[in-house]
């Protein structure tokens, strides 16, 4: 198995180094290029063949969002690399914007140590990495529509999944849900994965379509 090639862009050299060391530790991931700002990331994405671009949002010269838009556009003829956004901002709007411009997900820096590797793998599989804050917005919208009696995609959630989805909608974290239901956080995460899959929000394009339909992002 050849390792997936990653381009890493962050203006802070030490953060870049930290992320690189985490990713390089995994046998299936390898960082092949580094950029210190958005413009350099765009240039490198054109010159170096990569499978995934990890972009910090707050960068000088060109922000990560602008760079992602550019990378998605420029390489649209060939096979565009997958993209993953990285940021300090805890706000689901960044996740929705990331989806809108073609990225697979959004990882908060304060959980990068836990989530980044998983998010990279999900992105490489073509799945969306759903940012937890955004998950509650999506689920809230889903429950609202169901309550209003709108026709929803045929879904059969188990009783436990129903409990979990309600707590997610209330904005509880995996850890809090685990405590409330006296199950392990890992089990909660597995429920989350199943719920996303059942609601058709696992695949990046499916999820983007859902978010547009729900009015969470503009097409």
């Amino acid at each position: 198995m050849t390792a997936a090639r990653i381009l890493l862009a962050d203006d802070h050299a030490l953060v870049r180094r930290g992320v690189r060391l985490i990713l390089d530790q995994e046998p299936d991931l390898t960082v092949v290029a580094e950029a210190g700002d958005g413009a350099e990331a765009v240039r490198l994405a054109r010159e170096v063949e990569v499978d995934l671009v990890v972009l910090d949002i707050a960068m000088p010269r060109m922000t990560g969002l602008q760079a992602a838009r550019e990378i998605g556009r420029r390489t649209s003829r060939g096979s565009a690399p997958r993209m993953l956004m990285l940021s300090m901002h805890d706000n689901e709007q960044y996740f929705f914007e990331s989806l809108r411009i073609g990225a697979s997900g959004y990882v908060l820096k304060s959980v990068a140590d836990e989530d980044l590797v998983g998010a990279c793998r999900a992105a490489l599989r073509g799945e969306a990495f759903v940012y937890p804050g955004a998950m509650s917005a999506l689920v809230r919208d889903y429950l609202d529509r169901k309550r209003r009696g709108e026709r929803m995609p045929e879904t059969v959630l188990t009783e436990r999944e129903d409990e979990v989805i309600k707590l997610i909608a209330e904005g509880l974290s995996s850890k809090e849900i685990a405590q409330a239901l006296t199950i392990s956080a890992r089990t909660v995460d597995r429920h989350r994965e199943n719920i996303l899959a059942k609601l058709g929000m696992r695949d990046r394009t499916q999820l983007t379509r859902y978010a547009i339909r729900a009015g969470l992002i503009e097409p």
């Binding site: 802070h12 030490l14 953060v15 180094r17 930290g18 992320v19 060391l21 985490i22 530790q25 707050a58 300090m88 820096k109 304060s110 990068a112 140590d113």
Partner: peptide, 21 residues
């Protein structure tokens, strides 16, 4: 806060994770 403190703490967070393993 974002650019200085936040980035430094991120460096520490990632570094700790690596050492931990």
């Amino acid at each position: 806060l974002h650019d200085e403190v936040g980035q430094q703490l991120t460096v520490v967070l990632l570094g700790l994770k690596r050492i931990e393993q």
